[in-house]
Structure formats: structure tokens, C-alpha cells
Design a binder for these strands. Structure first.
Length: 644
RNA sequence: GCUGACGUAGCUCAAUUGGCAGAGCAGCUGAUUUGUAAUCAGCAGGUUGUGAGUUCGAUUCUCACCGUCAGCUCCA
């Protein structure tokens, strides 16, 4: 008999081979109706699966995240069912659930058209209405080869299965698929779904193998969730930094230098404000340096980049030797080590923190380039800390506070990930023990939740990654704190200790924004282009109502500029409505309207971005004081425009 | 890099089966003097991404190159 332990501690004894459904039935009638799948010892099984092992037993309903993956996986089968009906020639590949939905790969001679996809979606609705049960069957290898004789991709998969693995199939109506499961009980469970787009995908991700046609889709239990998801996709499109970058006139790209942004005078203000902000925050405890962009290959040989990273470096041709023997730097670290090594360092100087905003170049694959988020030329707020091993814990804590405080300025929250030793690594276990303990202790001391990513560390040391979530709930990996024991060896870094002997420092790599380029892309999307006042390229637009008020408006504009405000006069002879519309579309935070009444009273009518007709009559001086204060405190907009 | 789609005025987009390349916005000129999201009129704007080819004729068809976008990791 198998013994199953329920979450409340009670147990059930059942004969091996009993379907999970029968166990759920003993718990409760309502639960049985709500059940989607079960978990036995952490493995998700569907209700029809015969139980083989005992152990902890849980029932998943719609409320559990696990059952959404089950639904989506069933959605993939329903998609394949529909595709097979309309295109019997399609060979079936894989169809898993993914983070935001599911996909299915098909081998077809001609790619699917958007019309095909619409037809598939309509056909899926029929399959759902027909309410086919998902029937699991366990078969032997010979039988499996027979059943999938027309599906070469499946036969290949069967051949890869280990001798002791259970081979199972799932059938829903006319469609049978080799599948481990689990699945929802029948096709009618899929109610709210949407086919999203198609794309080519190599069979098993290998570019040497045939290209399949992948159909991406998503599904949810509730209509609201599906609608919300589709809305977020639309909202993300509306906020796309590549679109806003153009309409707000911030940056552009040109064929003459793919992957490298041209920053307009407006975008450059944002770029400079950000760097200035970082510079200001780093003034006290960091040492800003500048190092060359171009290096002989000898540096990259020392660092190891020449062997491992050359593909991604821009190499420079040497006229005399006819060789590609130098390169633009793709990272700052080696140049920082050179500068550090140029002098003897006392233990009293440590930790020593070098920071740089130097330009970096990485020769990314053309297909990888995407707006500002994946570029070939960029700047990081890059820091390398040289310190004694005993200083790791307080230093990590210091850096964490620094990074989290930075994100707070933008209303961004970060999730922390702690990545520990990977299988391939340098250094002995004792070193890794010390490093991981120091990092984890610092993490714990912040009191913040963090996720453990065992084995995900760099080969040279463990790290903490900062995943930042924007106003649409999308995660971006930005900051990082990485311990590095390998670089000090390679570069023979030293410091002189109290007893006058040479010692090896440890290096910490720290980035906060990731790159300014990518960070600005995230800010554009996060704020939907409506930047806080301190970052806005244009902070105030002054609008005289009629031409004869232009001189007064000009005086007001001058006064604002004298106070350091980025104010512009718009005295064009277009209507006020027209000029206001343009100011709103350019997301200028404040418009100061000057009419006859205001001119006489020394006031302005302030219109705040996104607040419509609501206006406020204030004195010019009071308004200037207010804007200057908002800039000084780097105040966030009253409400960051939420999705909607 | 690979697969697919796409590339037309500064921007967003049109252009039957191959037959003189258009519109809105932006720009310029003029009129209008405006009270909180588009005043009116006129003008100008292009070797249709680049280069070959097919054709009497190519934005349209073919090929190559450049670029953009979606993917190429989430395993029956």
C-alpha cells in the first residue's frame, strides 16, 4: 500500500495504481470538482494518473500557480489538435507551457500565415466545445514507435528516452501526443486563451537542425486575467522606448552605426542628468577614473578575454604588423586593474573603489540588437572595489544600500537573487565557503527577501543580482555585486598588510544601472515618457496667450532659466490650444500660461502634465521655488502613470 | 550569425493584375491674436534602403548586400 500525507498531516492509504482522482474524492466532493491536478512529493500529476509512490500529497485548484501551467500545457495540445485537423501534413514537435503562456512547434513546408493562425484559433474553440477528455495511456517502446510512425520528430524523442522511463501518451479526441503530462481532465477547461504570434524556432534549439514554425499563445483561468495580460501587451507597445524615443525626440539609430544610439539634445539631457546623479552619489566614497578605450591584445590575453570573448570585441587592424592585434574595450575591469597595479597600496587604503563612465563596445550579433536595451556601444556606472577578504561583509552591505537607494529614486523596486558556486569554477571550496557566507550574511542583514540561485554564480565568484520591476511588472536584471577571486590572481594585484608583507586583495564588480542606455530605456517605459521634473529635457514651457504678451512671457522664461530651470518660451502665433496640445504630447511637466490677468498680477496659470484643464494661479517666484525644490529633491511625479 | 516578415517625404501610412509615386501630421510663407489637447490658406518636400538583373516600362518580379522587427533558452 502507498501512504499519502496531506498538507493537514492526515494520511490516506491506497493501492498502487489507484488514480489520483480517487484519492481526491476521499478528501471532499467540492475539492474533487475544483481539482485540476495533484502533487506527489513535489511532482505534478493529473487526476487520471495511477499513483506509483507515496509521500506528501497536495491538490492543486485554479488558485495554485502550478495548475495554470497544466492548463497551458493542455492548451498546447488543443492547439496541436486544431492544427492537425486543418493541416494534416504538420509534423508535431514540442508544446510546453512557458512563463506567460505556451507554444507548440510544427514542422511544415510553408510558414503559417496570420490567416492560418486565425483559423487555428477558431478550430481550437471547436475542439474545446467538443469536450474531449485527456486520456493518458502508458505504452511500451515498440508500441510508441508504431503510433508515431508518421511523426519523425516524436520518433527521435522516443529514441532519446532512457530505458527505464515510462512512455506515456495523451489523447484528446482525434489527437494523440507523446507526453509526460499532466493535463486538465478535458478540453473544455480551456476557456480564455489567445494565439499571439508565430516565429521560427530550430528543432531543439539547434541551428543545424530544421526550422520549425512555433505558435505562441497564452491562456488563463479567468477572462479578467487574459484581458489584463493582453492589455499589458498593448500598454507595453504604447510605452515602447523605441517609439517614445522617436516621438519625444530623445535618440535615434542610423544604418551608419547599427546598435549605437545618436542622442538628441533632449535625450542627452536625460543621459547627463543620470550620470551627474550617480556622480553626485559617488562623490564621497568612490574614486572616479578614466581609462583608454583602445588596448593591445596583451591586456586581453592577461584578462582571458582574448580567448573567451574575442568574438564580441571590435578588433583594430595594425598597419605595420597587418594583424588585428588591438581592440576597443568591451569591459572596464582590466583597465581598472592596470591603474590599481601602477602603485603600491597599503591595507589602510582599502577598500578602494574605482568608478568609471567610460564608453564600452561589444560586437553583438546583428540579430541580438534591439533599441537601447541591446546595443553595441554603451556606458556603465561601473565600479571595482579592491578590498581585503575580511572586509567583504560590510562592503557588500554598503554597496547594497547604495544600489537599492538608487532604484528608490525612480520608484523602482528590486528583487534580489543570490547566485552561488557553479560547477565549473576557480578557487578552492574553502574560498567559496567564505565568499558565499559573507555575501549571504550581508543579504540577510538587509532583511529583504531573496531568491537562491544555486550554481548560477560567475566562475570567479558568487554574486547578488538585482532584478528591477517596472510599473508594468516586467523584470529587468540591472545591478550586480560580484565577488572575484580570479582577476586578482591573473593581474597579480597586491596590497601591503600591517606586517609589511604582500597580500592578494579581492575584487568586487558592481554595476547599478547595468548600462545607462538600457536604464534609460527602462525609465522611458516605466514612466511612459512622463519623466520626473529633474530628468525632463524640458521642465517648463511658457505660453503667452497673445503676441503682445510675448515680452512679459520672455521675461518670465529668463527668470526661470536664471534659477536653473530648463524653461522654453513658445510664443508662436498658433492658438493656445494648439500649443498646449503639443506640450502635452511632448510630456512637458509644466506649462505656464501668461494672459493679460497674469501679466498684470505677476502670476502665471500653471497647467500640470496630464491634469487636463485643472490650473493653478501662482506667483512666478513661488512657482520657481517649487520647481527648483522638486528638482533638488528629485521628486517623483505624483503618480507614476500606472498601466491604464 | 540563422529563420521569417518588413524597408515609400522628417513622422505615420496609401499606391488595382508591372503603366506619370499620394495623403495626414511636421516644415516653410502669409493671414489670424487666440484663456487650457489640432485656426485657415498657399508652398515646398522623393533616384521608393543600396546595387545588379528581367522587361518597352519596376515601389511592384528575381538575386545579392545593408538595416529594422519577431523569434532562435523555458524540452515528449
Amino acid at each position: 500500500m502507498l501512504v499519502l500525507t496531506l498538507p493537514d498531516g492526515s494520511t490516506r492509504e491506497v493501492a498502487p495504481g489507484t488514480p489520483a482522482r480517487d484519492v481526491v474524492a476521499t478528501i471532499g466532493e467540492r475539492l474533487l470538482r475544483a481539482a485540476i491536478a495533484v502533487s506527489v512529493n513535489g511532482e505534478t500529476l493529473d487526476l487520471g494518473t495511477p499513483l506509483r509512490t507515496g509521500g506528501s500529497f497536495r491538490v492543486f485548484t485554479e488558485r495554485d500557480a502550478e495548475s495554470l501551467a497544466v492548463l497551458r500545457h493542455s492548451g498546447a495540445h488543443i492547439l496541436a489538435t486544431a492544427v492537425r485537423r486543418l493541416r494534416p501534413d504538420a509534423r508535431i514537435g514540442f508544446g510546453p507551457a512557458i512563463d506567460d503562456g505556451f507554444y507548440y512547434d510544427f514542422g511544415v513546408d510553408k510558414p503559417f500565415t496570420p490567416e492560418d493562425v486565425e483559423a487555428f484559433e477558431a478550430e481550437m474553440k471547436k475542439v474545446i466545445a467538443e469536450k474531449y477528455p485527456f486520456v493518458r495511456e502508458e505504452i511500451d517502446r515498440a508500441e510508441a514507435n508504431k503510433r508515431f510512425v508518421d511523426d519523425p520528430l516524436k520518433l527521435e524523442r522516443i529514441a532519446d528516452l532512457g530505458a527505464d522511463e515510462v512512455i506515456s501518451t495523451y489523447t484528446d479526441g482525434p489527437f494523440i501526443d507523446l507526453c509526460r503530462g499532466p493535463h486538465v481532465p478535458d478540453t473544455s477547461y480551456l476557456k480564455h486563451f489567445k494565439l499571439l504570434h508565430t516565429a521560427g524556432a530550430y528543432w531543439r534549439g539547434d541551428e543545424k537542425r530544421p526550422m520549425l514554425q512555433r505558435i505562441y499563445a497564452t491562456a488563463f483561468w479567468k477572462k479578467e486575467d487574459l484581458d489584463g495580460y493582453l492589455f499589458r501587451i498593448e500598454e507595453a507597445k504604447r510605452r515602447d522606448h523605441r517609439v517614445l524615443g522617436k516621438t519625444l525626440d530623445l535618440f535615434l539609430f542610423s544604418q551608419v552605426s547599427p546598435g549605437s544610439a545618436f542622442w538628441t539634445e533632449r535625450g542627452t539631457i536625460i543621459y547627463n542628468e543620470l550620470t551627474e546623479f550617480v556622480r553626485e552619489r559617488q562623490r564621497e566614497h568612490f574614486l572616479e577614473i578614466k581609462t583608454p578605450l583602445l588596448y593591445n591584445k596583451s591586456l586581453w590575453e592577461t584578462s582571458g578575454h582574448w580567448g573567451k570573448y574575442r568574438e564580441n570585441m571590435f578588433l583594430i587592424h595594425n598597419k605595420e604588423t597587418e594583424e588585428l592585434d588591438s581592440s576597443l574595450k568591451p569591459m572596464n575591469c582590466p583597465s581598472h586593474y592596470v591603474l590599481y597595479s601602477a602603485k603600491k597600496h597599503s591595507y589602510r587604503e582599502l577598500p578602494k573603489r574605482f568608478v568609471t563612465f567610460d564608453v564600452l563596445h561589444r560586437n553583438e550579433l546583428t540579430g541580438a540588437l534591439s533599441g537601447l536595451t541591446r546595443v553595441r556601444q554603451f556606458q556603465q556606472d561601473d565600479c571595482h572595489v579592491f578590498l581585503m577578504e575580511s572586509q567583504i561583509a560590510p562592503e557588500v552591505q554598503f554597496l547594497m544600500d547604495f544600489i537599492l537607494g538608487y532604484y528608490e529614486t525612480f520608484g523602482l523596486t528590486a528583487k534580489l537573487k543570490f547566485a552561488t558556486r557553479p560547477e565549473v569554477r576557480v578557487g578552492d571550496d574553502a574560498m567559496w565557503d567564505r565568499a558565499e557566507q559573507a555575501l549571504e550574511a550581508a543579504l540577510k542583514s538587509t532583511g529583504k527577501a531573496y531568491e537562491l540561485k544555486a550554481g548560477d554564480g560567475a566562475f570567479y565568484g558568487p554574486k547578488i543580482d538585482f532584478d528591477v520591476e517596472d510599473s508594468l511588472g516586467r523584470a529587468w536584471q540591472l545591478g550586480t555585486i560580484q565577488l572575484d577571486y580570479a582577476a586578482p590572481e591573473r593581474f597579480d594585484l597586491q596590497y601591503t598588510s600591517e606586517d609589511n608583507t604582500a597580500h592578494r586583495p579581492v575584487v568586487i564588480h558592481r554595476a547599478v544601472s547595468g548600462s545607462f542606455e538600457r536604464f534609460i530605456a527602462i525609465l522611458i517605459e516605466h514612466f511612459a515618457g512622463a519623466f520626473p521634473v529633474w530628468l525632463s529635457p524640458e521642465q517648463v514651457r511658457v505660453l503667452p496667450i497673445a503676441d503682445d504678451l510675448a515680452p512679459v512671457a520672455e521675461e518670465i522664461t529668463k527668470k526661470m532659466k536664471a534659477a536653473g530651470i530648463r524653461a522654453h518660451l513658445d510664443a508662436r502665433s498658433d492658438t493656445l490650444n494648439y500649443r498646449i496640445r503639443e506640450g502635452e504630447m511632448m510630456k512637458v511637466p509644466y506649462m505656464a500660461v501668461v494672459g493679460k490677468r497674469e501679466a498684470e498680477a505677476g502670476t502665471i496659470a500653471v497647467r500640470e502634465r496630464g491634469q487636463g484643464k485643472k490650473q493653478e494661479i501662482v506667483s512666478v517666484d513661488a512657482f520657481i521655488a517649487r520647481v527648483v525644490d522638486e528638482v533638488r529633491t528629485r521628486a517623483l511625479p505624483l503618480k507614476v502613470e500606472a498601466a491604464g
